[in-house]
């Protein structure tokens, strides 16, 4: 499940927040290695706390935001696919009826299977553009 939510695209989007996390990590390491002002149990703990708390807070928020957006995208894509299928079946139903009228005399099996096979073939080729298109439109809507 986690693999499907945090796919390559999502992880790429999240890099924008990984960079500040990296900067914080860099300073934690730097201040651990280089301590010109010495070590003090209270002050040093607060110092690290001031790095760690934003780091953890940002990591948690990034995780949940990424998960929420990714899931919403997945649901929208599934819904769009179902809608497309539904519309296609509806329109194909009309086509079938029309083609059945035209192909009177041809055996019923041929009349029915033919267009449906075509449909499947179309669905096979159209599915991806439909999904891609819908995700593209999702982006557009989001951009607004």
């Amino acid at each position: 499940m986690a693999r499907t939510v945090f796919d390559r695209e999502t992880l790429l989007d999240l890099t924008v927040n990984i960079i500040p996390l990296g900067i914080l990590l860099f300073f934690v390491v730097l201040y651990s290695v280089y301590t010109p002002f010495g070590w003090d149990p209270v002050i040093t703990t607060i110092m690290y706390g001031l790095h760690v708390v934003p780091f953890v807070g940002l990591a948690i928020l990034t995780y949940f935001a990424g998960r929420a957006i990714s899931r919403a995208e997945g649901e929208a894509e599934r819904a769009a696919t179902i809608d497309d299928d539904f519309e296609r079946r509806e329109s194909n139903g009309e086509d079938r009826k029309a083609s059945a009228d035209v192909t009177e005399g041809v055996s019923g099996d041929t009349a029915e299977i033919g267009p449906e096979n075509d449909d499947d073939a179309e669905a096979g080729t159209n599915d991806e553009p439909a999904t891609g298109g819908s995700s593209g439109e999702t982006d557009t809507a989001g951009d607004e």
């Binding site: 924008v16 927040n17 960079i19 500040p20 996390l21 900067i23 914080l24 300073f27 201040y31 002002f37 003090d40 002050i43 040093t44 607060i46 110092m47 001031l50 790095h51 934003p54």
Partner: peptide, 18 residues
């Protein structure tokens, strides 16, 4: 304390990225 200042400098530089 300079150590605390250093922490705030680090986070301030990090926030410049977003």
């Amino acid at each position: 304390d300079p150590r605390l200042r250093a922490s705030f400098m680090a986070v301030s530089l990090a926030i410049a990225i977003p």
